[in-house]
Design a protein around this nucleic acid. Structure first.
Lengths: 97, 97
DNA sequence: TTAATGTGCAACCTTGAAGTTGCTACTGTA
DNA sequence: TACAGTAGCAACTTCAAGGTTGCACATTAA
């Protein structure tokens, strides 16, 4: 019965480095499967699947089943956030050191 | 030995509704003490103090001891983030809700 | 000096996040 | 059909976040 809090969901989703890596990967490649992303991260496929579910819950990625694989991609909102991530990174580094 | 990850710290800090409320309150009033903020939230002063420590760790607020009280205020980075919070809220609601 | 107010620290509890392993089911191909 | 590859579900473990209580320390005012 927790309140929806969509803003909190987005911030929580982006707080995790693995999920930000997934965001960057999807922004660069367009789409990816959970198995494909597993090669990019030092965690299991099931852990990647959970991260993808979290990102989907925050409205940052969407999925589409194609044959025996499920391909994920950034949503409109997700693309906007990814565009800001790079700028935010350099911005924070400039301000904090 | 966890990597610094300043971006993750900021996102984590802003993911909590109580901390966002603290941010908004500080933006509106300028400064506040932990005891004063306790009246604004349904949690204890010690919990508020932990939230303030988290915000300080993310570089969003700073503290200054004045006599027997410690007054907190937004940093430059914190002010910039608070400016964006309102816009982000309406932005997300427009896109998702 | 004593009482009241405001902080800070430490121990503890509960819950959810992140990750793992194990197993089952579906899909494409040899 | 048999098999390899992809995905999904469930139980379990570990650990940190958020919160609490209790107490000690510092500062101001009576």
């Amino acid at each position: 019965m927790s309140a929806p809090d969509p803003l909190g969901q987005v911030f929580s989703a982006l707080a995790d480095p693995s999920r930000r890596h997934v965001m960057d990967y999807l922004a660069a490649r367009g789409t990816a499967t959970a198995t494909e992303l597993t090669g990019e991260l030092p965690i299991t496929r099931q852990a990647v699947a959970k991260h993808l579910a979290t990102l989907a819950g925050a409205g940052l990625v969407s999925s589409e089943r194609q044959g025996r694989e499920t391909r994920y991609q950034l949503t409109l909102v997700g693309r906007e956030w990814d565009d800001r991530l790079g700028a935010l990174r350099t911005h924070l580094e400039r301000r904090r050191g």
